[in-house]
Write a protein that binds this DNA or RNA. Structure first.
Length: 875
RNA sequence: GGAAGCAUAGCUCAGCUGGUAGAGCGCUACCCUUACAAGGUAGAUGUCACAGGUUCGAGCCCUGUUGUUUCCACCA
């Protein structure tokens, strides 16, 4: 045996991963003899580093994938990365800024060259990090959203949707990030509460008969006001409707319009209308035919509409306008006010809503079948409550703004005729204009939203739009695993894209997990600096410990905290497995292992085999239901409390004897149970299980491809296992009394039992266990009338246990101890009687429950009698 | 404004279709017993937030209350 004494994951994890990879164990290809199991990875950004969120997400996927692979599925876990349009572009721009260069200076071509260069250099970082975690992805299929075939899929989809009238270009109010200088979709805006002010500004009536005061949080946009709106029924303003106001600072006449949109009770009940810079105002403007005047340009500075403020940053302009309003006597009040401000989800700077010409996807027709798919459970969210969130979003969906004023990404396949301006949308640059016949075209400058390409990920990575064998075999995917924070960005869009382009929802199940928070329950973030680096944890504790701690005891959909103690306890658990394995392998040295069927089994053997059956059955059941955390806890308990604490200790009786035959049998059982246990655990802790598996007698080349344990009918041993648990109960009882009375652990004592003939038959076979585990010198069966005077006792369900402890037994203490037991017993009996005396319970509860309760009561009454006899005899 | 989640042992969390409350860490006592002190044995600790309801029976189902977190909307 060559396993070192302490578990040291750094010694082998790297080599084992390389071994798996070199042997192509992760590779999948269509195989008609097997059922497919497919997961596509949520592609991490090329700018990203592996964080705890990935670690959790990948651990869950790898558990499912390794489990299914061992169950004999043709299992594909398809990896890849996302080009992350904005995030990457920002990085490149920043890098160029250090050289004193701007995008505009180097031009599109050079910029893209630099971006690709960056991608080639750093885009693979996260992939090497994923390998450290143990991800069993088919790396030969690694995809990138800007690969040729994936880009082809993007163009194809764009053209398809355009031809169907589902993509259009138009002037709309959109979200704009002045820092990233691009349009954003609604989903990309994050609202933050900010303390600001509500400015009350007086707009005089043109006829000099008075004024209207409006309240605004955005005084700088007043330069673009084209009306003031009041509620039609507001008596304060009724007479002013239709009159004109003088817009302060601009000295322009604007009308007072009546619109139901205005809330009478808010502010002054009058709203300034700036159609170019507010979505609601835009709608009001449309209803009243108001002009749309943009006063700000793309970088967030004031434009030339009002020369006095031209070039000023929006926040500078705000100050100056405030001063000017004050000076002109227009500022009535500046009231502190907290409100929500939209910010860019990438750079977090304050966004603008502006009117702009952009490309949109018409969502209603796409959303409808996508809603139906989830309603009909064709796609199921786990846990189910996330379907509500999905419905809520899908039902209220607005058109999706997909154009971005960036260079890094999929350039929009729209071409404008240089002669007549006609728009041609096609996968490749058109040769001639269908309208004027000329041959010069200019391609749209913009690129597509990153999520436009990731929406196609479940099929674009399998070769679509080509009809490939992969697509045929691996689509739909089996399950999608992701955190709840990208349900809108990604999951929803994959669902409608899959339905639209493949005719089938992309996956039957969506497993949603939570996010990993820090020790205090806060979200991990760069700005807080509270992120825990999974790579550091792996270096210190090993990938297996990290994986197990992320998977153990979690519930789908709920957040987890990263607790250092939890990692340690998982490391300890693996260390336990490590040492148990060492024990088994040490004892297996030089022993010829028998096939499990040929082993002559002891009661303990039968017990552990039946427990193994049980844990195998339950783990599979839990995994099939995505109850990954529950399955982990069950394995933990099996390994520690049953296999190590009991079976290995029981086995020592034989192993340390001279009976070579019995030893061979016991070792064979140990090896078998260890083998199955390692297989059970392999999906969770792949490295250490592979490492130990290699040393197992009769091991194949890898544990990865061995069959996942299933319950074996002939190892059920229901009755025998139960009987053996009676023996275990006796052992516990003796230990318990010893500890309570204070018998030195090294002192061996004679045990006397009072029991029935049937129980004695079972127990008699197990004396050696009692001697070994309970420190018994001997086990004898006695008549109750012939007990020594000083004994301590305990009643179990199969026997009364008497320990002659001589001077150690203090009669008064012993009586007190027994009375303590009696109290507990009485409570139990009262509870059972309460239930059974209830006619409703007996009449309506299932028969099995009633019978069970009756049996319990009978057993407890019997126990009570014996206990009472004992107390009486001591008195 | 709308919706959802959470509230269980000192701490962090499990708890499947309702059927006697669980784990890890921590705590107490004892133990270097030839796999493991990253360990062993034994133990203590809970009006399962509160109030009602359904049920023979509720941590679990229903209603309401309180506290807390999150998502969506964004009335200037």
């Amino acid at each position: 045996m060559n396993i070192p004494k302490t578990y040291n994951p750094q010694d082998f994890e790297k080599d084992i991963y390389k071994f798996w990879e070199d042997n192509h164990y992760f590779a999948a290809k269509p195989n008609p003899d097997k059922k497919p199991y497919t997961i596509v990875i949520p592609p991490p950004n090329i700018t990203g580093q592996l964080h705890m969120g990935h670690a959790l997400n990948h651990t869950l996927q790898d558990i499912l994938v390794r489990y299914k692979r061992m169950q004999g599925y043709e299992t594909l876990w398809l990896p890849g990365t996302d080009h992350a349009s904005i995030a990457t572009e920002v990085k490149i721009v920043e890098a160029m800024a250090k050289e004193g260069l701007t995008k505009e200076q180097v031009g599109r071509e050079e910029f893209l060259r630099r971006a690709w260069d960056w991608k080639n250099r750093y885009g693979g970082r996260i992939v090497t990090q994923m390998k450290k975690l143990g991800d069993s992805c088919d790396w030969s299929r690694e995809a990138f959203t800007m690969d040729d075939n994936l880009s082809h899929a993007v163009r194809k989809v764009f053209v398809n949707l355009y031809d169907k009238g589902l993509i259009y270009q138009g002037d709309r109010i959109i979200n704009w990030c002045p820092h990233c200088k691009t349009a954003l979709s609604d989903a990309e805006v994050e609202y933050q509460e900010q303390a600001s002010f509500l400015w009350h500004i007086r707009y005089p009536l043109a006829d000099g008969t008075g004024s209207i005061t409006v309240a605004t949080t955005r005084p700088e946009t007043m330069l673009g006001d084209t009306a003031v709106a009041v509620h039609p029924d507001d008596p304060r303003y009724k007479d002013m409707i239709g009159k004109e106001l003088i817009l302060p600072l601009v000295n322009k006449r604007i009308p007072v319009v009546a619109d139901e949109y205005v809330e009478k009770d808010f502010g002054s009940g009058a709203v300034k209308i700036t159609p170019a810079h507010d979505p609601n105002d835009y709608e009001v403007g449309k209803r009243h035919n108001l002009p749309v005047i943009r006063v700000m340009n793309d970088v967030g500075t004031m434009n030339d509409v009002v020369p006095a403020y031209q070039g000023l940053d929006r926040f500078e302009a705000r100050k100056k306008i405030e001063e000017d309003l004050k000076a002109g006597g227009y500022l009535v009040e500046k009231e502190p006010y907290t409100h929500n401000v939209g910010t860019c989800y990438r750079c977090h700077s304050t966004g603008e809503t502006i009117i702009s010409r952009q490309w949109f996807v018409k969502m209603k027709p796409l959303a409808e079948p996508a809603i139906k798919a989830v309603k009909s459970k064709e796609t199921r969210f786990v846990p189910d409550r996330f379907s509500k969130i999905y419905f809520n979003w899908m039902n209220n969906i607005k058109d999706w703004c997909i154009s971005r004023q960036l260079w890094w990404g999929h350039r929009i396949p729209a071409y404008y005729c240089e002669e007549c301006g006609h728009t041609v949308v096609s996968e490749d640059e058109p040769k001639t204009c269908p309208k004027c016949g000329c041959t010069h075209f200019r391609q749209d400058e913009d690129v597509l939203d990153t999520w436009f390409s990731s929406a196609l990920w479940p099929f674009s990575t399998l070769g679509w739009p080509n009809k490939t064998a992969d697509l045929d075999y691996f689509y739909p995917n089996s399950v999608l695993v992701t955190a709840y924070d990208i349900i809108f960005f990604w999951v929803a869009r994959m669902i409608f894209s899959g339905i639209e382009h493949m005719g089938k929802t992309p996956f039957p199940d969506v497993l949603i997990h939570g996010i990993v928070r820090d020790e205090l329950g806060r979200k991990m973030s760069k700005s807080l600096g509270n992120g825990v680096d999974p790579l550091e944890i792996i270096d210190r504790y090993g990938a297996d410990s990290l994986r197990f701690s992320l998977a153990n005891g979690i519930a789908p959909g709920s957040d987890t905290r990263f607790m250092p103690e939890k990692i340690e306890s998982c490391r300890n658990f693996i260390n336990k497995i490590w040492n148990a394995s060492r024990f088994v392998l040490m004892n297996a040295e030089g022993v010829e292992i028998k096939p499990i069927d040929e082993v002559k089994k002891t009661p303990a053997d039968k017990w552990i085999l039946s427990r193994l059956n049980r844990v195998s059955r339950e783990v599979c059941k839990n995994l099939d239901r995505y109850e990954i955390g529950i399955a982990a806890s069950k394995m933990y308990d099996f390994v520690w409390s049953e296999f190590c604490d009991w079976y290995i200790e029981l086995a020592k009786r034989v192993l340390y004897s001279d009976d070579a035959k019995a030893k061979q049998d016991t070792v064979s059982v140990l090896v078998y149970v260890l083998d199955m246990t390692l297989r059970l655990l392999h999906p969770y802790i792949p490295f250490v299980t592979e490492c130990i598996y290699r040393d197992l007698p009769g091991a194949k080349e890898t544990i990865m491809l061995q069959a996942y344990p299933q319950p074996v009918r002939k190892f059920a041993y229901g009755k025998e296992a139960k009987a053996f648990e009676g023996v275990m109960e006796i052992i516990s009882a003796i230990r318990n009394v010893r500890a309570e009375v204070g018998v030195a652990p090294s002192k061996r004592i004679n045990v006397m039992l009072v029991t029935s003939p049937e129980h004695q038959k079972t127990i008699a076979k197990c004396h050696a266990y009692i001697e070994k585990l309970a420190g018994a010198a001997s086990v004898n069966y006695v008549d109750k009338d012939n007990l020594p005077s000083k004994v301590s006792s305990k009643v179990t369900s199969v026997a009364e246990v008497y320990l002659p402890l001589g001077e150690l037994v203090d009669i008064d203490k012993e009586i007190a101890r027994l009375k303590g037991e009696m109290d507990k017993l009485d409570k139990e009996i009262a509870r059972s009687q309460g239930m059974l005396n209830n006619p409703g319970f007996v009449a309506r509860a299932p028969q099995a429950v009633v019978d069970g309760e009756k049996a319990k009561l009978a057993a407890n009454l019997d126990k009570k009698n014996k206990l009472q006899e004992r107390i009486d005899s001591l008195k």
